[in-house]
Simulated scan of single mutants.
Amino acid sequence: EIKLGKVAVDAGIVELTQAQAVEALSALDILEGSGIGLVDACRLVKRMQESGIGDIAEIEHAFKLGAAQIRHEKKSPSWSEAAWEMVRVKEKITRRRERTLQQIRYMIRRMEKRCPDFCVRPIGGITGEECRAAFGRAFDSPIQQDKARVVFSGVWTLAMKRGWALSNPTRMLDALKTQEREIRALTPEEVERLLLACRPPLPDDSSQLDLTSVQPAVAILVFAGIRPEELMRLTWEDVSFEDGVITVRAAASKTGGARHVTICEALRAWLSLVPEKERKGAIIPEYWRSRWEAVRSREGWGKKKPWPKDVLRHTFASYHAKTYADFGKLQMEMGHRSAELLRNRYTNMAGLTGEMAKQFWKLKPSLGNQI
């Protein structure tokens, strides 16, 4: 009414009523010094009503929320600063493993390289849709993008604790539907050849290393499904022949929880090849990585025939599931948090028969395989 009245007055047609004039003067008095005109203030209120915020109480509440958000944005650090602070906390306070920290650092640097504009934004003002768009630009596959959602949720968790953000926008994002890549289990014949490759060198071997000391570690990877990084922290003191279990201590476990892994008859037979007096200290031998690579090379694994990542863990899980069909037990053995993810990622029954599973669990050393 004030706007129309002003136009009408300029045209010399009508004048404001006394009540309208008083209200207009009061409004102008309130806005004095704000740098905001009366018409702009009216337009702002109108836009809020058009967005579904109706009465004055709702409008006041919306202004309070908006003001709080703006204050957080002004005092909050950039996304990059918050992300690196999260790394510092994980390294110095929660003491996450170096391999985990390396993965997080890599992901942050990838974000900074591919989404520089996003990374300099105040973390308190970033929305869920902006997160989804940035993760999509920084990471190529849906699996990587979903991992970014999970990992970087921790950045906002820290930001909320520090008062840098009011909410965590990544929690509003749905998990992306992903297709796990299919990894076949090794055949019993391939497993046996791999174990028997842990031996002294033959004249025609490309590597003249004596690899017999690698055999116990390979047997544990095959018949216990223990993660390679967990294996590197195992000692012979963690192996109990009496109780029939290998203890993966919390300090050695990837997930941070201790667990017992069953020593099956085949694994017991291979581990028993090590003389009792030598069962001390680390399971893996000195120069483990190069020796393990040499074992695989003896069986033709290399550049022309790449070694599938985690294939021995996949092999154990597949034969265990085929034999026992007990995913709950398998989940406990492998130390996996999700039975569903375990079923999708680690078990592949394609081409795997019951007879093959029987052969797998019967793979034991012959008298000529003594270490």
Rank of each mutant, 00 (worst) to 15 (best):
P200A: 15
P200K: 15
P201H: 14
P201G: 13
P201M: 11
D204R: 14
S206C: 06
S207H: 11
S207M: 05
Q208S: 11
L211W: 03
T212M: 08
T212Q: 13
S213M: 09
A217F: 01
A217W: 01
V218P: 00
I220W: 00
I220R: 00
R227C: 12
P228S: 11
L231I: 12
M232D: 03
M232Y: 09
M232K: 15
R233N: 11
R233M: 13
L234E: 12
W236K: 09
E237G: 13
V239G: 04
S240M: 09
S240Q: 06
E242G: 06
D243L: 10
D243H: 13
G244F: 11
G244L: 13
G244D: 08
R249F: 02
R249L: 08
R249V: 02
A252M: 07
S253P: 00
S253C: 08
S253Q: 09
T255H: 05
T255Q: 12
T255D: 15
G257Y: 12
A258M: 10
V261T: 03
I263T: 07
E265N: 13
A266S: 15
L267R: 10
A269N: 09
W270K: 08
P275T: 13
E276Y: 09
E278F: 10
K280L: 05
G281Q: 08
G281P: 02
A282Q: 10
A282T: 12
I283C: 07
I283K: 01
P285N: 03
P285Y: 06
Y287P: 00
R289N: 08
W292G: 02
W292V: 04
W292L: 10
E293C: 03
A294S: 14
V295L: 03
R296D: 07
R296T: 07
R296H: 10
S297C: 04
S297N: 08
S297H: 10
S297R: 12
S297V: 01
E299G: 02
G300S: 09
W301F: 14
G302F: 06
G302Q: 02
K303I: 06
K303N: 05
K305Q: 07
K305W: 09
P306L: 05
P308F: 04
P308W: 02
K309M: 02
K309A: 06
V311Y: 01
R313V: 03
R313E: 01
T315Y: 02
T315L: 03
F316C: 05
F316K: 03
F316D: 02
F316Q: 05
A317P: 00
A317Y: 03
Y319W: 04
A321E: 13
K322A: 10
K322D: 08
Y324E: 08
Y324H: 13
D326C: 02
